[in-house]
Amino acid sequence: MAMILIQSLSFLLVVLVAYLFKKTGILRSTDGTILQKIILNITLPATIIVGFNAVKVDVILFIMIGLGLLTNLVLVLIGSLFWRKKDPVDRAMMMFSQGGFNIGNFTIPFVQGFFPAAIPFIGSFDMGNALMLFGGSPMVVDKILGQEREESSYIKRALRLFHSPSFTTYTFMFLLALLGITIPKTITSVVELFSSGNAFLSMFMVGLYLEIDMDTSSLRKISKLLSVRYTLAIAVAVLFYFVLPLPEIVRFSLVLVTLAPVGTVSTINMIVYGNKRSTSSFLSSISIIFSLILMTIALTLLA
């Protein structure tokens, strides 16, 4: 328990240091773009390779992919029941704020030091999560709002998935596991060098992107959105952990992913559908703080 708290506080410290660097002018929030490119193209794929290597594919991994799809779908649909009388822009924000989990840039870095054995399960869930983020959720939102968007065609969004190095790496490692192919230790030992920096860089990037300045009206809106999100997230986490007949490490992985922050692509979708960039970014930033606290509590209680 002490190690979990120390690790969580260490992550928070990295986030705060990055935020202070931004506020004092040493770095700028735009510098986070460089870190994001390094993470998405190098350290995160390396972490996925190390985590997935030598994994035996069984039905549980397919179940996790399905749960990633189903959880997103259900949460978006539940989100559609809220703010039914509001305008389409606000309704879209509510739906996107409920579905979509930041797993690659937050959850995996958070757990890789505690439970590396959980990465294949979390990664499998993220494959389903990505399918919804890049295609499924916008199509559902369009259907509910009665809108048609050319950019939301299924084929285009399916192809966009493979523009993501992490999703491509998931798919590649999943295929290797299906074929029973294991990457030799001589290669993974080099890959581990790159993956070792993933957690620090991810948390530092979070700090550079962190925004905590917002007007009163937007704060009220964001508080309602996050209240709904985390009430649903906790309910789903309890359901997954205490009801599903799956191994404990799998149920524990599900608890962590459901408590994850708002997905980066969800934030982008909010902006695409007409919401202010500042409000959407602030929502994402605050969700990171809430998730860090809740995931630490979950680790403390269940680990």
Rank of each mutant, 00 (worst) to 15 (best):
V140W: 07
I103S: 03
A117I: 14
I187Q: 02
K56V: 12
G99A: 13
I60N: 10
F167V: 14
S80I: 02
L69E: 00
S196H: 12
S285R: 04
M173H: 03
D58G: 08
V236W: 07
N275Q: 14
G146A: 11
A54K: 11
F106T: 04
T168Y: 09
L254F: 02
I181C: 04
S10R: 03
F194R: 06
V50Q: 02
K22C: 02
L20Q: 11
F134E: 07
A298C: 12
A177K: 05
K86T: 10
L77H: 05
L225T: 07
S195M: 02
I286C: 04
M214K: 10
L259A: 05
L44Y: 09
V250D: 01
S80A: 11
F96K: 06
S153F: 11
I48Y: 00
R157V: 10
L256F: 08
S196I: 11
Q112V: 14
S137A: 15
V14C: 05
I286T: 12
P88I: 03
V191A: 00
Y273S: 11
I155G: 12
S195F: 05
A199N: 10
D142A: 05
S152V: 15
F174G: 03
A130D: 10
L299G: 15
P245M: 05
F106P: 09
L61P: 00
N72Q: 04
F115I: 07
I144Y: 08
T24H: 08
T24D: 10
K56Q: 12
T296V: 05
I60H: 07
F106G: 04
P116W: 04
T182H: 13
T258G: 08
S137Q: 07
R277N: 13
F290M: 14
I297G: 10
V238S: 05
R28V: 13
E248G: 12
G25P: 02
K221M: 14
L178K: 02
S253Q: 00
T43Y: 00
V191P: 05
I4V: 13
I65H: 03
L75Q: 08
V190G: 08
S153R: 14
T216V: 15
F290T: 12
L69W: 06
G135T: 06
A303C: 11
L67I: 12
R91I: 05
L35P: 07
T169H: 04
Q36V: 09
V257E: 01
L35H: 06
I39T: 09
V55K: 05
A54M: 01
F240N: 01
Y273M: 14
V191T: 02
A177R: 08
F96I: 06
S80K: 00
I42F: 13
M270L: 12
I187L: 13
I155L: 15
F11C: 09
A303G: 15
P245Q: 05
V206I: 15
A199W: 07
N129F: 02
P245K: 03
A260P: 02
L201G: 06
L254C: 03
I39G: 01
V59P: 00
I249S: 04
T24R: 11
L294Q: 05
F52M: 15
T186A: 14
K37D: 11
F290D: 04
F121I: 13
I49Y: 01
N105P: 09
I122T: 12
Y209K: 14
F125R: 01
D126L: 09
F121K: 03
F21H: 09
F62G: 01
I271H: 09
A237N: 10
L12G: 08
L232I: 15
T264F: 11
F121Q: 06
V255N: 02
V74I: 14
L210V: 12
